[in-house]
């Protein structure tokens, strides 16, 4: 084929026009870079952690700097679910429904003590879900009560770090993600 012949003729070291204009990378890297540079979280706050999440979105901490500014009002457009606040058992089926409505690939941050383990309500909270990972798979846990905006940003970086090393052919992303726990 003619194309193959042309490729063989290019000498990257000597041909100045090619050297200055061609960039070689892998598809995985490009896709992961685009993905990690536009992580759109869902507008979804359950308790006081959501206040810190709002502060992270506001100008002082400015989550927009890392491409994660547009909090989407629907799960259909979101990549990231930040579970910010105490999940009551009444809310739990709704949280699961929202998670299932998000398109793949999707990521979950469990923000704050309540979301990780039930927090202060673990013993006497008759109506509090004792860790959102009993319901949906969680990628990153952020401890704190509530975590400061810097901590949430660090959690976002961890999600981005995770995105950086994914392979497009690994469609099920097995080994990267736990399964849904409650059917």
């Amino acid at each position: 084929m003619a194309g193959e012949a042309n490729i063989q003729e290019i000498n990257f070291n000597t041909d100045a026009a090619t050297r200055d204009n061609v960039l070689i990378t892998t598809l995985d890297k490009v896709l992961n870079w685009t993905r990690k540079s536009s992580v759109w979280p869902m507008t979804f706050g359950l308790a006081c952690c959501a206040i810190e999440m709002m502060a992270t979105g506001a100008s002082n901490y400015d989550i927009d700097r890392f491409g994660s500014g547009p909090f989407r009002a629907t799960p259909r457009q979101a990549d990231l679910m930040i579970v910010a606040g105490t999940v009551s058992l009444k809310m739990a089926p709704r949280v699961k429904l929202l998670y299932e409505q998000m398109p793949e690939p999707k990521y979950v941050i469990a923000m704050g003590a309540c979301t990780i383990s039930g927090g202060p309500y673990i013993k006497y909270g008759y109506h509090v879900l004792k860790g959102v990972d009993r319901l949906i798979p969680v990628d990153v846990y952020i401890p704190g009560c509530p975590p400061r905006p810097e901590a949430l940003l660090e959690g976002l970086f961890r999600v981005q770090e995770k995105m950086k090393f994914e392979r497009i052919l690994d469609r099920t992303r097995e080994g990267l993600r736990p399964k849904i726990l409650v059917e």
Partner: peptide, 13 residues
């Protein structure tokens, strides 16, 4: 407190 609610474990580990 109930041990489960709609299949969600509610016990303290």
């Amino acid at each position: 407190s109930p041990d489960t609610y709609h299949g969600i474990k509610n016990n303290v580990v």
